[in-house]
């Protein structure tokens, strides 16, 4: 099992949640992974389709009223230890949508955010910096969990 753990800690899997984003940051997230010039996958990161496989969750968008419950539901499905990264200024502060009638954000009212990547949208390289920061935090959390003897996968 430790062999598997050693391999797994090299590559955190990413999951994207769109919390009412204008799609700009989502395009940058796709660019970060799929354009060979940036290529986040050489850092061992990979986008996955299911929240239950994810380690690092990237949230874009200001958290609109309509999508709030779904975002929280999906976020709760991601197993611990997870790291939440807010991409773009919208989830961090509300950005240009701040004070709108349908905006529930900033997102740290509802979720514990770990890393912020401001920008409108942020550069792919800036997103990669954020992912590297998140990876550091994630490795620390795994170590802590191992010390305490907690099982990694805990799906509620």
């Amino acid at each position: 099992m430790s062999f598997l753990n050693n391999i797994a800690t090299k590559s955190p899997w990413l999951f994207r949640i769109n919390a009412g984003s204008c799609n700009g940051c989502d395009v940058e997230l796709a660019t970060t992974a799929f354009i060979p010039r940036f290529d986040v996958e050489r850092l061992g990161c990979k986008y996955c389709g299911s929240p239950r496989h994810a380690d690092i969750v990237l949230i874009t968008g200001p958290l609109t009223l309509k999508i709030k419950d779904q975002v929280l539901k999906v976020w709760n499905e991601i197993p611990e230890p997870k790291v939440t990264v807010a991409v773009g200024i919208c989830p961090i502060s509300g950005g240009v949508f701040k004070g709108g009638h349908s905006i529930e954000g900033p997102i740290d009212r509802y979720l514990p955010v770990d890393v912020n990547v401001p920008g409108c949208p942020p550069r792919p390289q800036a997103i990669m910096e954020g992912i590297l920061l998140a990876k550091e935090i994630w490795l620390k959390r795994i170590e802590e969990a191992e010390r305490k003897g907690v099982r990694h996968v805990q799906i509620s």
Partner: peptide
């Protein structure tokens, strides 16, 4: 563009 930071530094940015 090096703006990525941890949540603790949110209001120091």
């Amino acid at each position: 563009w090096h703006n990525s930071h941890k949540q603790d530094d949110k209001f120091k940015m």
